[in-house]
Nucleic acid binder design. Structure first.
Lengths: 334, 334
DNA sequence: ACTAACATCGAAAACGATTTCGAAATCGTT
DNA sequence: AACGATTTCGAAATCGTTTTCGATGTTAGT
C-alpha cells in the first residue's frame, strides 16, 4: 500500500543513491547500471513510493493528461468512443479526463483559462460545434486540439462520412418499389451540440434522390426534434401525406425507434408496410431488427488520439483530416 | 487572452510589489491595502496572468478538484446528478473531473495509486458497489470519499429509499382490482455496478404484497436483464402465466418501456389491460404517459457534495448517512 | 603505461507558487 | 514626544521532481 509523504529523497536514502539516480531509474534513463537499478526499484517497492504528480508536472510543465469534451448524451457512441480514446492514450502513458458539457453554467466555467480541463497537455472535442465553441463561446483553447465527429479547417479532425452514409442508406431504400421519405433531425445551430452531422445526412439523402432521377420534394421530408416524441410526430406527418407501403430513412436510430414503436401501435409491419433504415447502430438496433448505418467508432477514437499524440510531439505538424466510412447493416426492417 | 509563461514574478515586477504581495491579493489575504490590491489586480489583467495550477497544487498539496467515479450508462439520472455535484462544487471553488468505469481495462488502470483520479482532494462514487470496489478490486482509495446511490457503513453516503419507493409503487398498483406482477432487474453481484438498488426495490415490492395480505408467489415475479430485450422477455413470461387485465411494477423505466412497446405490438391498452408503474422517471416517461417513481437527484448531488466538502475540511467528522425519498408520479399507465 | 573513450553516478539548479516572520511605516494614546 | 499597537509589505524558505553537467572510475587501444 502506498503511504503518503514518501518522497524520492526517502527512496534515495533507503537505496543509498542520489535522488537523481532514483529519478533516472523511474524515467528509464539509460545511464544506470542494472544492479543499482534493481536496488532502487526494490526500495521503491518496499517504501510504497509513488511519484508526486503535482511536483512532476510542476517541474516538467506536462501533465500526461488529455481532456475530452463531449455532450452528455449517454449513447453507446460516446461509450465506445471514450473507451477507444482512453485505451489508446493509456498505451502511450497518458490519462484521459472527461468533461461533459452539461449545461450553460458548466460551459461558462470553462471560459476561464485556468479551468481544470486546460490543466492538460491536449484536448479532444467530440461531436461539438467548433464555430460555436471557438468563435461564439470563445473558449480559451491554446492547447493542442483535435476534433472528432466535427470538422474545422484549423484543427486535426476525424469525421464520419455522414453524407455518404445517408446516401448509401437512401440508395438501399430506393431499390424498393415504394415512395421514399426521410425523418431528419432539425439541428439548431446556436448550440454547442450542433456539429453539422445531421445537415450532412440530409444532403446525402437529397443527393441520392437526385441521382435516382427524383426531385427533392418538400413533403417527402419531415424534420423532428432529437427526441422520441419528435420522431413520432414526424412519422405521423408522413402518414398523413402518404399511405403504406413506404420507405423511411431516419437520420438517427433514436428517431427510427419512434417509428418502430408507433408502427407497432398502428399495426404496420416493418419490412413490408414500412421499410426503415436508421443511422448509428445503437446496441438495441440488432435486437429490434433495425437496418441502420454502423460507424467505426473505435477507429475514430484511435485515429483522433494518434493525431493528438502526434501534435503533442510536434506542434508544427501539418494539419490532418481523416474521414471514416459508415457501413450499411441490413436487418429485417428494410 | 492569457499568455503562457507569465508568472507571478512578472506581475510583481509590473506592479512594483513583491511576489508575496501578489500571491496574497490573489488569495484574499486581509493584510493588503486597498490601493495596492487594485494595482496588482490591474497588472494581472494587463499581463493576462493566470495561476499555474501545477505549481500551486505542488506547493499547497491540494488540487481543488474532486473525482467522480460512475458507470458509463448515459441515463438522465447521471446527467442530473453530475450537474448537481458540479454546481455545488463550483460554488466552493472546486472542480469536478469525471471517470466513468467503462470497462475492465480502465478499472485495472485505476488500481495504480498514482492514477489520475487520485490526483484530487476527494472522491465521489456514484451507483457503484462499494464491496466490489474496495474489497474485491482493492482500489487504493486513501482520499476523503462519499458514496451516492450506494451504501457502506464506513463512508458518508447518500442513498435513495429504493425499498420504500418500490413499496409505494406496488401499493398504488394493489389498489387496482387485478393481479399484480413485478419485472425485476436481476443484479449480478460480481460486478462493480451492482449497487444493490434493485435488490432493495425487490424487497419493497415483496413487503407491499405481504402487508396487503398476499403471499409472495414466485410466478408473480419475472427477472430480467438490464436491457430492452430483457424487459420484453420478462413481459412475455408474465403473459404466459396470466391474462390481462393485470398490474405490473417494473423496477426501472428501461424495463417499463419494453412493456409499453410490446403491449402496443400486442394491442394491449395501457391503463386498462395493463397497469404499469416504472422507476426512475426518465425524460421520455412523461411523453409516453408512464407512471413511475421520481428521484430527487439534484438534492442527492448537493448532499453528497456537502458531505465531501465537510470531510475535506474536517477528516475526523462523524460519518453521515442520508436517505432521500422517491416520489410516485401517476400518469396514464396506471 | 598512457590516453581516449565510455559508463555510471550525484550535486545542484530550476520550476512557480504559498506562507512565515520580521521590518518598516503609520496610527493612537498618553 | 514617546511608546505600543496596528497595518502593510517583502525577503526568503519551502514543496518534490527533473535535468544538466562535471566528477570519477573503468575499459580499450596503442
Amino acid at each position: 500500500m502506498s503511504k503518503a509523504g514518501i518522497t524520492i529523497q526517502d527512496v534515495a536514502k533507503h537505496a543509498s543513491v542520489g535522488v537523481s539516480t532514483v529519478s533516472k531509474v523511474l524515467n528509464d534513463y539509460r545511464d544506470i547500471a542494472p544492479d543499482t537499478r534493481e536496488r532502487v526499484l526494490k526500495s521503491v517497492e518496499e517504501l510504497g513510493y509513488t511519484v508526486n504528480r503535482a511536483a512532476r508536472s510542476f517541474r516538467t510543465g506536462k501533465t500526461q493528461t488529455a481532456s475530452i469534451f463531449m455532450p452528455m448524451v449517454g449513447t453507446e457512441f460516446y461509450d465506445r468512443l471514450v473507451t477507444a480514446i482512453d485505451n489508446e492514450l493509456a498505451a502511450h502513458d497518458y490519462d484521459a479526463a472527461l468533461f461533459p458539457l452539461l449545461n450553460s453554467q458548466r460551459l461558462a466555467r470553462y471560459k476561464a483559462p485556468d479551468a481544470l480541463p486546460y490543466h492538460a497537455d491536449g484536448l479532444i472535442f467530440a461531436s461539438l460545434n467548433p464555430d460555436w465553441l471557438f468563435t461564439d463561446a470563445r473558449l480559451p483553447v491554446s492547447l493542442p486540439t483535435v476534433l472528432v465527429d466535427a470538422y474545422h479547417a484549423n484543427y486535426d479532425t476525424v469525421t464520419v462520412d455522414n453524407s455518404g452514409g445517408a446516401y448509401a442508406a437512401t440508395m438501399h431504400l430506393l431499390e424498393r418499389p415504394a415512395d421514399t421519405f426521410a425523418i431528419l433531425v432539425q439541428e439548431r445551430y446556436d448550440t454547442p451540440f450542433a456539429s453539422g452531422v445531421f445537415l450532412e445526412r440530409r444532403k446525402g439523402f437529397e443527393r441520392a434522390l437526385r441521382e435516382h432521377g427524383l426531385s427533392v420534394q418538400k413533403d417527402h421530408i419531415a424534420t423532428a426534434e432529437f427526441s422520441s416524441d419528435g420522431g413520432r410526430i414526424a412519422f405521423r406527418q408522413i402518414l398523413d401525406r402518404a399511405k403504406p407501403p413506404l420507405n423511411i430513412f431516419a437520420s438517427c436510430d433514436l428517431l427510427a425507434r419512434s417509428v418502430l414503436d408507433e408502427a407497432a401501435r398502428l399495426d404496420l409491419k416493418l419490412g413490408r408496410d414500412i421499410r426503415l433504415v436508421g443511422f448509428d447502430d445503437q446496441p438495441w438496433a440488432a435486437g429490434l431488427g433495425l437496418s441502420t448505418m454502423h460507424q467505426p467508432v473505435e477507429q475514430m477514437g484511435k485515429l483522433a488520439t494518434d493525431f493528438l499524440l502526434k501534435r503533442l510531439a510536434d506542434a508544427e505538424h501539418e494539419i490532418r483530416h481523416h474521414e471514416v466510412k459508415p457501413e450499411l447493416i441490413v436487418r429485417e426492417t428494410s
